[in-house]
Write a protein that binds this DNA or RNA. Structure first.
Length: 214
DNA sequence: ACGCTGATGAAG
DNA sequence: TTCATCAGCGTT
């Protein structure tokens, strides 16, 4: 049976079914809040509760990577739902998305932040910091903490290495939404979702500045 | 406010 | 082939 230790107690939950992802992206983005992102390395588990997401929806959404059509990079977004789309950005970071909607319609949910639940030591080592807050509060940070890079691009989120399973359900009243972070187009859509008053939500630089009034 | 860093895709 | 752009982060 599965080993049990302080750092890697077994996760009994099964991955969300593919049908979870094969729905309107805004619904998936909201419902992913509270779910558990899991990376399994043998008997060691890294687990985080998703607390911030963003929806990128189709070729009509100018901020969506697939807005200018299907390319080698964006082909995964056009494929079947429930797979990981991981891209490299700003020369240093990776970002994790879950492909949504039906095969042929390009859309995905960016996982922007998680609350560390399990494997904190591993995450701290990869991140090079001991500070719990800030360990996974951002799309680049969480990929670094979870050790996710382009080798996981296309990974099946319904598989057993990198997957998302039911955690808790976040009631609508505890969800917040806002425009998406760090984009220059498509700002009119409030397609960023987060768990209110959760300290692991990134917010992004502009939003932090906005909160402090600068 | 900037430097870091490299893939991407549009322009030529 | 060059070039601006970039769904970010850390330091200043």
């Amino acid at each position: 049976m599965m080993q049990t230790s302080n750092t890697s107690s077994a996760i009994a939950a099964a991955p969300l079914p593919r049908s979870f992802y094969e729905r309107p992206t805004l619904i998936v983005a909201r419902e992913l809040l509270g779910k558990h992102l899991v990376r399994r390395m043998g008997e060691v588990f890294l687990v985080g509760k998703i607390v911030e997401t963003e929806a990128y929806i189709g070729q009509e959404d100018p901020a969506c990577h697939a807005a200018r059509g299907k390319t080698a990079r964006t082909a995964l977004m056009f494929g079947p739902p429930g797979f990981a789309y991981i891209y490299f950005i700003y020369g240093m970071y990776y970002c994790l998305n879950a492909v949504t909607e039906s095969h042929g319609f390009p859309a995905a949910v960016l996982i922007r932040a998680v609350e560390p639940l399990q494997g904190v030591e591993q995450m701290s080592l990869r991140r090079g910091t001991r500070r719990l807050e800030g360990l996974t509060s951002g799309p680049g940070k969480l990929c670094q903490a979870f050790g996710l890079d382009s080798t996981y691009n296309g990974a099946d989120l319904c598989g057993d290495e990198l997957y998302i399973c039911p955690g808790e359900s976040i009631p609508r009243a505890k969800q917040g939404c806002s425009p998406r972070v760090g984009i220059s187009v498509g700002k009119e859509h409030p397609w960023r979702f987060f768990v209110k008053n959760n300290r692991f939500v990134s917010g992004g630089r502009k939003q932090k500045r906005a909160l402090t009034g600068r």
